[in-house]
Design a protein around this nucleic acid. Structure first.
Lengths: 225, 225
DNA sequence: AAATCTCTTTTTGTATCCAATTTTTATTTT
DNA sequence: AAAATAAAAATTGGATACAAAAAGAGATTT
């Protein structure tokens, strides 16, 4: 979020040094949407955002287009941008897609997976069990990514990443993480064990279960509210 | 592509005003990349594109960002945009992802699929067998989309669409479509038959085979050149 | 009350700057 | 001649200002 503050002068006004403006706005806005500080459906006015991020409209528009591609922002022609709405159907769909994409990634990665890489995933799992709940989403993504990395499938991995971020948006809305955490951790350990044995069938079914139960927990938690 | 030529005055200079500029540039550029008229790796300079599409740099940048999200353009900071490179690995990955995504879509759609919708897909297949090879990519996508539509999964369907477009880019590079066509048509008929019987297992395995053989044909055709 | 017509707000697009980076070219140095 | 360096040319990233179109809100008329 912080930026190099090498300031210079332009048209009599102060401005930040070049670089990373769009990236800043994207990550800032994305974080606010994922964390729920920006509620679904609320309008995102270009001028307002430009002022909030101390930038001009141009990088703001670039950022909005990027976030539209990621599914966090809805852009209607001539009507502007709004925080993408949420729905139970959407969660369901995201988790169905995660099952398909991540089981594919695991199947490809498993034969290439070294013990060292499994150890690294186990270390991430250790951090998950110690870290505060607020970091769960990010660490969970890191755990899964560590296991899929040997697949060497850039498109697939970035697709999985996008789905994970979309899921995090819903995850952070429900405080159901607390009683779900222990179950998720146990499932991660099961998955690691199956990976160590290089048991593809077992590993994939562990993963499918893991994602499906997470999805179901989220859906029921959303339907309750 | 044609546009209203409302002319107006600004800063003493004449300028043409148009509507839907960004969409025009995106679809125009995308078509040129898919059709291969713009070769992989060739630079896309903003100023040059702006002149070619008779627009200013802002909509050009918007378009480039969108196309980057779709994977057709590669954007390096401070170095500009280039037509995304191609590789055999990329084709392989795209078709792996298509298998996963489309078999999921078919599994979800099949129980909701009506005979009328199957007939509509069969009608599209009829058109495929009559139409010129240049329209194969677009019609093939329409055929598959017709079968998946009842799944009512917007995210999944647009993901499948993107993969299809990415695949079309490689498809149009190889003229291997000619001896592949008869095989593809037979597979489409098999798939339709399995759908009519509502035989999920058979339909999905037909589809998986269909996509995999298409991928393999493309890979071997690319490796030959 | 319903329809029409302003008036305002907001988005979309154009044009023109300027600064920071590459990339290229020319010039020196070894 | 080859390598290193400095100057110059392209190009991108970003800012500002302005024009036009659409959507929304009021006010007016029917």
């Amino acid at each position: 979020m912080s930026n190099v503050e090498k300031v210079t002068e332009m048209h009599g006004r102060v401005l930040r040094r070049r670089g990373g403006t769009v990236a800043d706005i994207v990550s800032g806005l994305r974080h606010e949407i994922i964390s729920g500080r920006l509620s679904p459906g609320s309008p995102l006015r270009q001028e307002h955002l430009a002022e909030r991020f101390k930038a001009s409209r141009m990088p703001v528009r670039d950022a909005l287009r990027l976030l539209e591609g990621e599914g966090f922002v809805q852009l209607d022609p001539n009507r502007g941008a709004r925080v993408a709405p949420i729905s139970v159907d959407d969660v369901q769909e995201i988790f169905e897609m995660r099952v398909a994409a991540e089981s594919l990634a695991l199947r490809i990665a498993l034969p290439e997976l070294s013990n060292m890489q499994i150890d690294r995933a186990a270390a991430v799992q250790d951090r998950i069990e110690r870290a505060p709940a607020s970091e769960y989403g990010m660490l969970n993504a890191a755990f899964h990514k560590t296991l899929y990395a040997p697949a060497a499938r850039p498109r697939l991995l970035s697709h999985i990443d996008m789905l994970g971020q979309a899921a995090n948006r819903y995850l952070s809305m429900t405080i159901a993480t607390l009683d779900y955490a222990s179950r998720s951790n146990a499932e991660h350990h099961d998955l690691l064990l199956a990976c160590r044995k290089r048991d593809e069938g077992r590993a994939v079914s562990c993963l499918v279960m893991h994602i499906e139960t997470a999805g179901k927990a989220l859906v029921s938690s959303l339907e309750a509210s």
